[in-house]
Every structure is written in structure tokens, then in C-alpha cells.
Deep mutational scan, measured.
Amino acid sequence: NQESVVAAVLIPINTALTVGMMTTRVVSPTGIPAEDIPRLISMQVNQVVPMGTTLMPDMVKGYAP
């Protein structure tokens, strides 16, 4: 099972992602793959992401799977 990126904290809208904001977990449905965390650093979320929420591609500005 592939791990997906999950919010480790509440991430406010338009916040640039940092390593500490993200964790990984096997979830269903799957979100952004864990191995993409290095690509996500400094990208901004386009909505509020509650802690424990799986990051989906459409939540991150400029992210393309």
C-alpha cells in the first residue's frame, strides 16, 4: 500500500508547505504520494487543510501529478 501525504497540523489557506506540516499515512482514497514531499515544500495550499486531512493534488497550487 502506498503512503499518501497527510496534514500533520492545521494548514491555513495560502500557506507555503514545510516538512513539519506534512506526515504520511496509508489512506483511502490515496492522495499525493509520500515521495512527492520534496516537491511540495514551498508550494501553497489553496484551501484550509485540517489536521489529518489527506492532501489531494487539487489542494496544492501548481502541483501536477
Rank of each mutant, 00 (worst) to 15 (best):
T53N: 15
P33D: 04
V9A: 14
M21L: 07
G62M: 06
T24Y: 11
N46E: 07
G52C: 11
E35R: 05
I41P: 02
I32N: 01
D36L: 12
G31W: 02
V19F: 13
Y63P: 04
L40D: 00
V5W: 02
N1L: 06
S42T: 12
V60D: 01
V19S: 12
L55T: 01
A8T: 09
M51F: 11
N14L: 07
V19N: 13
I32R: 00
M59A: 06
V48W: 09
L10R: 07
P33V: 12
G52M: 04
A16R: 11
G20Q: 11
T18E: 08
I41H: 04
E3Q: 07
G31Y: 02
V27H: 04
T53I: 06
V26P: 07
R25A: 12
I32C: 03
M43Y: 10
D36M: 15
T18M: 10
K61P: 07
S28L: 07
S4C: 03
P12M: 08
G62T: 07
L40T: 02
M43C: 04
E3Y: 12
Q47F: 08
P38T: 12
T23A: 07
G20I: 09
A34N: 07
L17F: 02
T30L: 15
E35S: 12
M51A: 13
M22S: 01
N46A: 10
P38M: 14
V60I: 10
T18V: 06
T30Q: 13
Y63F: 12
Q47E: 13
I11R: 00
L10V: 08
G52I: 02
A7F: 02
L55K: 00
K61Q: 11
I13M: 12
I37F: 09
M22D: 01
V60Q: 01
G52W: 09
P57M: 06
I41D: 03
E3G: 05
N46M: 09
M51I: 15
D36H: 15
V49M: 04
T23Y: 11
A7P: 00
V26H: 11
P50C: 07
Q2K: 12
L17K: 00
I37Q: 13
L10A: 12
V9N: 07
G62V: 04
L10G: 10
L10S: 13
I41C: 04
V27A: 15
V27N: 05
V60P: 01
V19C: 11
N46S: 10
N14H: 15
S28P: 02
Y63A: 04
I41L: 15
R25Q: 12
M56N: 07
V26Q: 12
P33A: 06
V5Y: 01
V27K: 06
R39W: 07
T15Y: 10
E35T: 15
A16K: 11
Y63L: 10
K61Y: 08
A16I: 14
D58T: 15
L10K: 08
E35M: 05
G52Y: 06
V48C: 05
V6P: 00
L55D: 01
R39D: 03
V19L: 12
R25P: 01
T18L: 10
V6C: 04
M22R: 01
Q2N: 14
S28V: 10
M56R: 09
T54P: 07
V27T: 14
N1C: 07
M21P: 00
N14M: 10
L55W: 01
V60R: 00
P57N: 06
T18I: 07
M59P: 01
P50M: 07
N1M: 04
L55H: 00
M22N: 01
T23F: 13
D36V: 08
V48S: 12
R39S: 08
I11C: 02
A16G: 08
T15G: 10
S42M: 08
T23N: 14
V6E: 03
T54K: 04
I32W: 02
M59C: 03
S42H: 14
V49L: 14
T18A: 15
D58Q: 15
V19K: 13
V9Y: 10
I32Y: 03
A34V: 12
I32P: 00
V49Y: 01
A34S: 14
P38K: 08
M21R: 04
E3A: 06
P38N: 09
P57Y: 10
D58Y: 14
T23C: 04
A64I: 06
Y63W: 15
D36C: 05
R39H: 14
V48A: 09
T15E: 13
I11T: 00
I13R: 09
S28R: 02
Q2V: 11
T15M: 12
V45D: 00
P65A: 10
V5A: 15
P65V: 11
M51V: 12
N46T: 12
V48Y: 09
T24V: 05
V19T: 09
G52H: 11
V49F: 01
P38W: 07
T30I: 15
P29F: 08
V6L: 05
V60M: 05
A64F: 14
S28E: 15
T15N: 14
T23W: 11
V45N: 02
V5S: 02
M56D: 04
L40P: 00
L17N: 00
S28F: 15
D36F: 09
P12C: 06
V6N: 02
I37H: 03
L10W: 08
A8C: 04
I11Q: 00
M21S: 04
I11F: 02
G20D: 13
A8D: 10
N1P: 15
T18N: 10
G20S: 14
G20V: 08
S4P: 00
S42Q: 13
P38Y: 07
P50W: 10
T15K: 14
P65F: 02
R39A: 11
V45E: 01
T24C: 04
Q2I: 14
E3R: 04
K61E: 12
A7C: 03
M59S: 03
I32F: 06
Q47S: 13
V48P: 15
E35V: 12
M59H: 09
P33C: 12
Q47G: 06
A8S: 10
L40K: 00
V48H: 08
T30H: 15
P65S: 13
E35F: 06
A64E: 09
Q47M: 13
G31K: 02
S42Y: 10
Q44E: 10
V49A: 03
P12H: 08
E35Q: 10
E35I: 09
T23S: 15
V26T: 09
L10Q: 12
K61R: 10
M43Q: 10
S42V: 03
V19D: 13
A8W: 07
L17Q: 01
E3I: 05
A64C: 12
I37K: 08
Y63G: 03
V60G: 00
L55M: 13
P50K: 05
V26S: 14
M43T: 13
L17I: 05
S42P: 03
L55F: 15
A64L: 12
T54I: 06
M59F: 10
A7K: 00
I41A: 09
V6R: 02
A16S: 07
N14T: 06
I13D: 13
L17D: 01
P50R: 08
